[in-house]
């Protein structure tokens, strides 16, 4: 916290370019030779280094996709693990170039923090986890319960709203990190633990006796999670936004990691524009024309990243649900590349 604040203060005071981004982010990243990505260091499925220090997760793959588009090398990323409460300051101060840390898009965050949300790479909602032994079947039965929650999140606010709206009493126990909140829940300090439903699935697996805990059916909020950039650099904003759309488009047209080289010879004009064999859509972003082909080759399309990190290929086994493509009943929809 202190370190981040000092950097912000220094940047603000000395007028360093970091806090006042002006179409320089891409050049800075190229000169530095790597992308600084603000990530969650403790959330399975979204951002978590494994025992060998290799980062995995949906948000991690998003940063790798950005690095692939810029450098043709998904490993030119430096991941900066951030807590929920320090993340915005780190982005504002220029410590990271992009914040891909399961961050909920809200109007006040979009307007008063000097930041811009780019796209939604995971549609989430807040849920509750309780011990089976409590015999609770619905969040509406949680009147008077003690609930552990992480600080500096929309979760904290939704929780208070939900209990107020349903005229229930609440005892919140707030912790600085998700780790501490979960540990306190595991030690029976609280009756329930609340966070985004995707987070619950991951956190549940980290508890001592996974099967003693259930996730309640209620989803009490909308949590559109997506990558965030600083205000003021429209080129970088476009690059980050279209990196996500390129991954969604690739899934829509069946371009996968394994078939991307063959698909480059495809006659389908949509695929040709996506992979850069027709038009100059990459150049318009300040990237090479095969930017999207690089993303798919190194990281895969959106569906592949989803299944690998949070879906059937992972321990979380979360279904696509509303994160399916728009033509399969979900909300993932990319504007056309043309």
């Amino acid at each position: 916290m202190k370190r981040v604040f000092v950097r912000l203060a220094l940047a603000a005071v000395l007028g360093a370019t970091a806090s006042v981004a002006s179409a320089q982010t891409l050049n800075t990243i190229k000169q530095r030779g790597s992308l600084n990505c603000g990530a969650n260091g403790t959330l399975a499925g979204f951002g978590l280094p494994d025992s060998q220090g290799r980062w995995t997760g949906l948000d991690v793959d998003f940063c790798k996709a950005l690095a692939a588009a810029i450098f043709n090398d998904p490993n030119k990323v430096k991941f900066v693990p951030l807590t929920a409460k320090d993340r915005f300051t780190a982005l504002q101060s220029g410590e990271v170039d992009v914040l891909a840390r399961n961050t909920t898009w809200t109007s006040s965050r979009d307007t008063s923090l000097g930041l811009n949300f780019t796209a939604v790479n995971y549609y989430d909602g807040q849920g509750f986890m309780v011990r089976k032994s409590l015999k609770v079947n619905s969040a509406l039965e949680l009147n008077d319960a003690a609930i552990c929650v992480q600080q500096g999140t929309t979760t904290e606010l939704n929780l208070a709203d939900y209990f107020r709206a349903n005229k229930m009493k609440l005892k919140t126990v707030t912790f600085a990190t998700a780790d501490e909140a979960l540990k306190a829940y595991d030690a029976s300090r609280c009756d329930a633990y609340t966070t985004d439903a995707s987070g619950l699935a991951g956190e549940r697996l980290r508890l001592a006796n996974t099967n003693d805990h259930i996730i309640l059916p209620e989803i009490i909020s909308k949590e559109p999670l997506g990558p965030v950039v600083r205000h003021g650099d429209d080129q970088w904003f476009d690059i980050v936004k279209w990196t996500h759309y390129a991954m969604v488009t690739a899934e829509e047209f069946g371009v996968t990691r394994s078939n991307v080289d063959d698909q480059a010879k495809s006659d389908n004009p949509e695929i040709k524009r996506l992979l850069g064999t027709e038009g100059k859509h990459g150049e318009a972003l300040g990237l090479p024309n095969d930017w999207a082909a690089r993303i798919v080759k190194h990281v895969g399309n959106y569906g592949e990243a989803f299944e690998r990190n949070v879906g059937q290929g992972s321990a979380l086994k979360i279904g696509r649900g509303i994160n399916a493509l728009w033509n399969k009943g979900g909300l993932q929809y990319a504007p056309p590349i043309r």
């Binding site: 912000l8 929920a84 500096g152």
Partner: peptide
């Protein structure tokens, strides 16, 4: 204050 309020308002300084 420097936890939740700072994070919600974004007004670190």
């Amino acid at each position: 204050f420097t936890g939740t309020v700072l994070n919600q308002t974004g007004q670190a300084i």
